[in-house]
Design a protein around this nucleic acid. Sequence first.
DNA 1: CTTTGCTGTTTATGGCGTACACGAAGTAGT
DNA 2: ACTACTTCGTGTACGCCATAAACAGCAAAG
Lengths: 280, 280
Amino acid sequence: MARGRADDPDHGVELLWRAGDREPRQGLSLPRIVRAAVELADDEGLAGLSMRKVADRLGFTTMSLYRHVPGRGQLVDLMLDEVLGEHPQPMETGGWRARLEAVARHAWEIRKRHPWLAEVRGSRHVPGPNAVAHYDYMLSTLAGTALRPSEVIAVVGMVGRFVDAEALVLVETRREERRSGVSEEEWWGSRDSLYERLDRYPTLSHLWTAGGWDHPEDSFDFGLRRLLDGVEVLVRKRDEIRDEKCAECGGPLEPAPSGRPRVYCSRACQQRAYRRRRNG
Amino acid sequence: MARGRADDPDHGVELLWRAGDREPRQGLSLPRIVRAAVELADDEGLAGLSMRKVADRLGFTTMSLYRHVPGRGQLVDLMLDEVLGEHPQPMETGGWRARLEAVARHAWEIRKRHPWLAEVRGSRHVPGPNAVAHYDYMLSTLAGTALRPSEVIAVVGMVGRFVDAEALVLVETRREERRSGVSEEEWWGSRDSLYERLDRYPTLSHLWTAGGWDHPEDSFDFGLRRLLDGVEVLVRKRDEIRDEKCAECGGPLEPAPSGRPRVYCSRACQQRAYRRRRNG
DNA sequence: CTTTGCTGTTTATGGCGTACACGAAGTAGT
DNA sequence: ACTACTTCGTGTACGCCATAAACAGCAAAG
């Protein structure tokens, strides 16, 4: 019943969106596999996630998993939705900025708990119900602004990618530290053979002596602030446009789909104004 | 001579920073290996880069490569610097914003030519001369602003990660399209079994019917603009602070390392003002 | 001539995803 | 009750991957 060609995405959708399946008392089951896989990935990262290890953790053979999951790819899809389900999006109040920031920080927290989330690559991961719920909520934070629909989508995408990018450096750092037993600071500190060669680079040297690396900014906080500032600039601009009135009748001005600013609210007003210019 | 333990980073530095090595007329050589590897990765992505395939491309056995390169990791380091060498940072004129934008677009172009660049993960890649030159130039674009050193570094890091994040979705999209022969649009268009379930999500549905996905923003352009806007907000703030004068003597005001705004340029002026307040 | 060092090859180990054929156990139909 | 069919877990096997270790050919140095 769970069997289906590994590269049939619709079967993936099926697996993701069916809820509350009976869990047999014993033996394998999809939820059990997914949970084991999540635990494993939490411990060892996405690269350390292998079908063999998941099976070992459950006390079954590798191939037994394929009776329930089409393959590794789809397993990752399921894991993704599983962990998002563990962290439901809390309802926040406040303006768009406060809510969007809260969403970003929430996503950041999730990624600290499940670092492998940021490592998931691929443009064709079918979203499960929890992923969609999160996405919908993120979109909703900006729904009240004057941003155009495509802009709302773009901003949400940008924030998501920002969080993932930041999480990724965190993950990599952690992984290398665990693997080598040497802290990041220590490791870079021992690269004298590299530093010797950096004197020729003026700005680098200048910022170095100015202590730029001694008290670095918090990468996530700093980036998020800049990013939200940038969004705010756009929101304000759109708000101004929204507040402008038609030059003829003073009525509300709908933004053009092209983005080009309008002066009149309708062809009728445009004509009225033209006639007045000619006659007056 | 090229041999050294695979996990000795100093040996990696050596490999990266020695320039103009003699190239033997025939047989293997480090530059030849690196060039072949770059070509391979251009074709098949970083995941498709294997020691076997590189060796095959050169007509040697797999293990022969290990006589010249410590391992796959270091090979990637070398490839990185190789491609940056092909695209030297052009000197741009204009304000910090124009220059920073040009740098970002330049990086974007490189990533379009060598998509695997964005796929390189890991926090301990030793930079080669070309990488450092690029980094130094990026830093220099902001050196003239009133940003604090740590902020200059943070901004440059953020822009770099942004470009990589955007490039990554591009890469993934391309890869999946090539692998499956189905275009991204087509693929998502066929996910009816998914769309059926999305009606319950209000904002999503609303944006969908509003046509938000019909004419999407250019992800890179849009993001870069927001990002630079956000940086500009900070630069302006710092400029204002810089332009403020000492409340006592009117002299220039150095920013405190803590970031807390200052009122007086020195302890002396602070004392003078205090005495005046008490006596006047 | 022998020694040493560089280069490329061969062989082998251990990891990975997963295709395929099989056996055991349960279920439905007669 | 007996058969036919499905479900689930297993064992084996293939083809990929990185790389360790021992070895063979060759040149220059002693």
